[in-house]
Design a protein around this nucleic acid. Structure first.
Length: 669
RNA sequence: GCCACCGUAGCUUAGCGGCUAAAGCACGAGUCUCAUGAGCUCGCGAUCGCCGGUUCGAAUCCGGCCGGUGGCACCA
């Protein structure tokens, strides 16, 4: 029976347009591997979909003033279109917001609940009677039970550094309004008992032979640190409703339901078949994911599957690193990077991109996207080496043999053996998911073809055998490279009139008959083309603007509650000049600023500006400060005020500064 | 500050205890003409981040340091 293989790519969030880093870090390698598996004759399914739940999506939707559903509907289409353009051959591309996924997740929850892997824990959550709201741990303060420090926060004491349970605080106060009317109310939540599953997971992880080293290391280090029960319910509306009595108002935390999306996407394909890929003995599951996702796929998702009890665990978790762009990171707002949105209209076929990106799949470490490298690789490898070998062979047949592949008896067995050995090696690399090396070997094989052609000089001898062998090598190369550049591969096979559809007869040198008129497969790239590509692909449309709809804007204000002038007057906002800047000894992101306001001694204020501004950029600058902010101790150092700055979605920071010089201590109103 | 991973020719990478450290690109020289000035041949080019240790032997193992990246912490 044919081996079954299920291949998955990471489920992208639907709050953004993907860039090529997202493609190369999961969808493309998964697709290459899935295509290989199909050609090799495995019973293969390649599935994906969008992960639509979670607060990231909710917050993004809120920002744009639309519902999460609207946002997801919109980006789902964009994502799907982009993957289609890239020829990512998903058998199904689903969404976690679909009913089938919600139903399946609920089944999981019920089953795991029955199996006893959920703990129901009442956590006492602080409630401020004055604010009439539940207080997150960090918004309650009191006296530390360990060191007696009076301003300890609910989650951690700044003075002794101990992690705290808010209920143990003495004299608790609300740090929002200062009220002492705090009540601890019982709130039931479901916890997934990872601690109980830990030995099983550890045994399973240690047993894995096919995983890459760093993947295993990351998994084991998580286990070593100790797996703790994890809360899986949240007080939100957007998500899968918890199907258990007493939790009707809660939804499943997104990390729990997202990976189940792989299963629901499979299920969506066909009711009868899907179980074979997930439950049958010997069926293999391959996950292709970015490095940030490794713990989820090596620990949490397997734990979910173990707790449910009837599923296979992943066979291989292929953890990819990141792709950098011209030695920096991708940044949408700065227009740094290659974004997929305009790729289809940028003028270059998907195979060019697939070819280059395959060279820089971050299989073992972070890799670089460089335009100069892009150009060089396309011109020398794709055009000069691979394309040239195909083209010179086909043109030779067309011009010198009237398009008929000559019939010969093969004498040069050394050629045949060498090619067969290479094919075998390439298959081994594919099996190990060493895709970059597989591509390298394929290119070495076409290089071998070029050298052979050169050495035998058929243009002088008209040697039929050379042409016969090279024509067959063209067919073999086209098949071998098909997972990487599927469109071009099919074009070559069509030109050869080959009926080879898969790898079943790849070892046979049996290509004969007439070929079609050869056409150039790839064109060289020049600097002008690169420049145009660069410009087109660095742009991203801002699909939603916060100010788009006045109604939504008003609604937002209403939801937040209007502020009155009286409220505003509570803020004492002043202008000051930065006199000195030094590093906070205990915190990586903080500066300690000394700010001069004429009427008082310089104020010490902490600000999270490290990495955003250099020290010398700050000194002498006039800034806007809320001076009556309640003093706060962070990691042992007091901050007396709050610096105002603007922050965008990409985490860029701009300090607010008066637009012309004005006396220190001027009031802002 | 803690933890993990990475640091190899100008560039992109391979090797991860043992022959003179490998490949492609770039560069230089030569050469062919079937092929998109593509191809082929030869050459140039690395004290393998730094310091120390283990070993008969280290790019490879161990310790420390430096640099990069990510995670955690923190971000009034």
């Amino acid at each position: 029976m044919k081996e079954r293989r299920l291949v998955t790519a990471a489920l992208p969030y639907t709050n953004n347009v993907p860039h090529i880093g997202n493609i190369v870090g999961s969808h493309l390698p998964a697709d290459i591997f899935a295509r290989y598996c199909r050609l090799k004759g495995y019973d293969t399914l390649f599935i994906g979909g969008t992960d639509e739940h979670g607060s990231a999506t909710e917050i993004a939707a809120q920002k744009y003033g639309i519902t999460p559903k609207q946002l997801c509907d919109f980006f789902y289409k964009i994502h799907k279109k982009i993957y289609k353009w890239f020829n990512i051959s998903y058998d199904n591309f689903s969404r976690t917001s679909r009913k089938i996924h919600h139903d399946l997740t609920k089944q999981f929850i019920r089953k795991i609940y029955e199996n006893g892997y959920f703990k129901e824990e009442k956590i006492k959550l602080p409630y401020c009677k004055n604010c009439k709201r539940q207080l997150p741990d960090r918004f309650i303060e009191g006296t530390c039970p360990y060191c007696g420090y009076e301003k300890a926060r609910g989650d951690q004491c700044e003075n002794c550094g101990k992690l705290l349970d808010p209920i143990k605080l003495k004299n608790p106060r609300c740090s929002i309004c200062g009220s002492k009317e705090i009540e601890f109310r019982d709130e039931k939540h479901l916890f997934f008992d990872l601690e109980k599953l830990s030995p099983k997971i550890e045994k399973w992880v240690k047993k894995q032979k096919t995983w890459r080293e760093h993947v295993k290391k990351i998994a084991l280090s998580w286990i070593k640190e100790g797996l703790k029960p994890r809360c899986i319910t949240r007080d939100l509306k957007w998500g899968v409703k918890v199907p258990i009595k007493g939790y009707e108002n809660k939804v499943i935390y997104c990390w729990f339901d997202a990976p189940i999306g792989y299963i629901s996407s499979t299920k969506e394909l066909g009711v009868k078949q899907w179980k074979k890929y997930w439950k049958e003995r010997g069926a293999k599951i391959y996950h292709f994911i970015g490095k940030d996702n490794i713990p989820f796929h090596t620990i949490f998702f397997p734990a979910i599957l173990l707790a449910e009890g009837s599923y296979n665990l992943p066979y291989n978790v292929v953890g990819l690193q990141y792709l950098n762009y011209e030695r920096t990171k991708f940044s949408k707002s700065k227009g740094i990077g290659v974004f997929c949105e305009n790729l289809p209209t940028a003028g270059l076929g998907a195979d060019y991109w697939r070819f280059y990106l395959s060279f820089v799949i971050p299989e073992t470490k972070d890799t670089e996207f460089l335009w100069s490298d892009f150009k060089d690789r396309i011109n020398s490898e794709l055009v000069g080496n691979f394309g040239n070998f195909i083209n010179r062979t086909l043109k030779f047949i067309w011009n010198k043999f009237k398009g008929e592949i000559p019939k010969v008896k093969i004498k040069d067995q050394k050629f045949v053996e060498h090619v067969k050995k290479k094919i075998k090696k390439i298959f081994e690399l594919y099996e190990k998911v060493e895709l970059r090396k597989a591509l390298e070997e394929i290119l070495k094989l076409s290089d071998f073809g070029n050298k052979y052609f050169q050495k035998r000089e058929p243009w002088k001898t008209n040697d039929k055998e050379t042409i016969y062998l090279c024509a067959n090598l063209c067919k073999i190369l086209a098949l071998l490279i098909q997972p990487f550049i599927p469109d071009s591969s099919k074009k070559i096979l069509r030109m050869l009139n080959s009926n080879g559809r898969d790898f079943s007869s790849i070892y046979k040198f049996d290509l004969k008959g007439k070929i079609r008129k050869p056409k150039i497969l790839f064109n060289k790239l020049d600097d002008k083309t690169i420049k145009i590509l660069m410009e087109k692909t660095s742009r991203v449309t801002e699909y939603f603007k916060k100010e788009d709809k006045i109604e939504e804007k008003i609604k937002e204000v209403v939801e937040m509650g209007y502020v009155t002038f009286e409220d505003f007057k509570k803020f004492d906002i002043r202008i000051g000049t930065i006199k000195a800047v030094q590093d906070h000894p205990e915190a990586d992101k903080l500066y300690i600023l000394l700010i001069e306001f004429d009427e008082e001694p310089d104020r010490q204020i902490l600000a999270s500006l490290k990495g955003k501004y250099r020290k010398d950029e700050l000194i002498g600058k006039q800034v806007v400060v809320i001076v009556n902010m309640k003093p706060m101790v962070i990691r042992g150092i007091e901050s007396n005020g709050m610096l105002l700055a603007a922050v965008d979605r990409e985490d860029n920071v701009a300090l607010l500064s008066p637009e012309r010089k004005i006396a220190n201590n001027s009031r802002v109103m």
